[in-house]
Design a protein around this nucleic acid. Sequence first.
RNA 1: GGAGAGGUGGCCGAGUGGUUUAAGGCGCUCGCCUGGAACGCGAGUUGGGUUCACGCCCUCGCAGGUUCGAAUCCUGUCCUCUCCGCCA
Length: 421
Amino acid sequence: MISIEEIRKNTSLVKKKLAKKGDKSSIDNLLELDKEYRSLITNANELRSERNIVSKKIASLKKDRLSAKTEINQMKEVGESISNIEKESNKIKKLIDTILLNIPNLPHDSTPNGIGSKDNKLVREFGKLKKTDYKIKNHIELGRDLNLFDFDRAAKISGSGFPLYTNRGAKLERALINYMLDLHSLEFGYVEIFPPFLVNSKSPKTTGNLPKFSEDMYQIENDNLWLIPTAEVPITNIHKDEIISEKNLPIKYVSYSACFRREAGSHGKDTRGFLRLHQFNKVELVKFVKPEKSYEELEALTINAEAVLKSLGLKYRVIELCTGDLSFSAAKCYDIEVWSPAEEKWLEVSSCSNFESFQARRGNIKYRKNDGKTDFLHTLNGSGVATPRLLVALLESHQNKNGSINIPEPLQPYFGSNIID
RNA sequence: GGAGAGGUGGCCGAGUGGUUUAAGGCGCUCGCCUGGAACGCGAGUUGGGUUCACGCCCUCGCAGGUUCGAAUCCUGUCCUCUCCGCCA
């Protein structure tokens, strides 16, 4: 969440930035509640102070075997007042917290202004397609012809939107995951993590998925657990309620996880094959960094994610999201999109975001500076990358006239072959 | 799933209703001592709210309750450990 001090101090600037993100939260109402809350707290504290003093007096009177009747009766009243004020202030505090938890992060000054995806900015484009003189197949045809996955049977088992990889498809999926994990950990210095896939409700609150986006996640009601929509959720919460020494920053994690998303409201959009799934695999990058380094770290993280596509010989581009297209928790975000030759579309395979202190504040994640003071650190993350659309691009881009698929060189040791035919 | 034990500061650990304003120790930081160090001596060392500030208040897993007053008593809840059962 954004800080209430910031809202108090720079009210008009906060309003302006929220408007850029298309948010309509009532800041004036929030500030009014905040004012009321603080006045109640001050009042209660004064009474508590009085009670503390008189309580000591009661103790010493009793020790000397003197009557403390007057004081006790007096404090009975004070105690009641305190409890009344507390009830009221707790109610207001809850309201304030609810409002704050539903206010999105403020966009960074470098984020371009805009309303929707058409206002996003192209940052760079990389890679070329090979020229073909034959009709290329889409990933569904390739998968069927080469027996790589089976959507009909997946639907029989689970329903639509669930993947069933078969044979060399299953192995290719595993190879991609292992390749990406090794690339990020061995080449780029991220520490490998394997997280739980079910989390309590505090964890998605840290990342910003709850309370606002409960509809997007699968919930296990019996045990009050949630299936993770991304490894970002468990990984970011590794350091929840911790104070990390400045000399240990930055912390860089890479993690594979299965991801589960209800995709409520996106039915009928890009639903063919692997384009949109309820369950998919992803390798995720997460960083905990000093505030003054976070934008530098975002550039580096984006480049790390791009390296996957670059090394696999795929055509991709990097898009800078505009204020209106930015996700709830992000201050700045680059999307990486890979080209699908058969769909003739750019497919989003990664979102690399700087959340600044938004998540750190929600999860109470701090760092201790060298001077001994503590402050919220900054968190970042990005996919490095999600497999389904990567697989789509890979199959389609590297297919041959005879229907076989060339496996890019860096992937060959993981897959165990240079071709699928 | 059943039975039991327990959660106190960075760590260990005392504390069963009122000078606990959380003892004592370890660690860490600073100072003295020293040629330099060790030892020793002294000081500091949870996090948060509010205030221009001094200060005041909260914080003993979490949430309620009893009481003039709760780390301490009661209820619920979460977590950890031990034993039993089940199990990849």
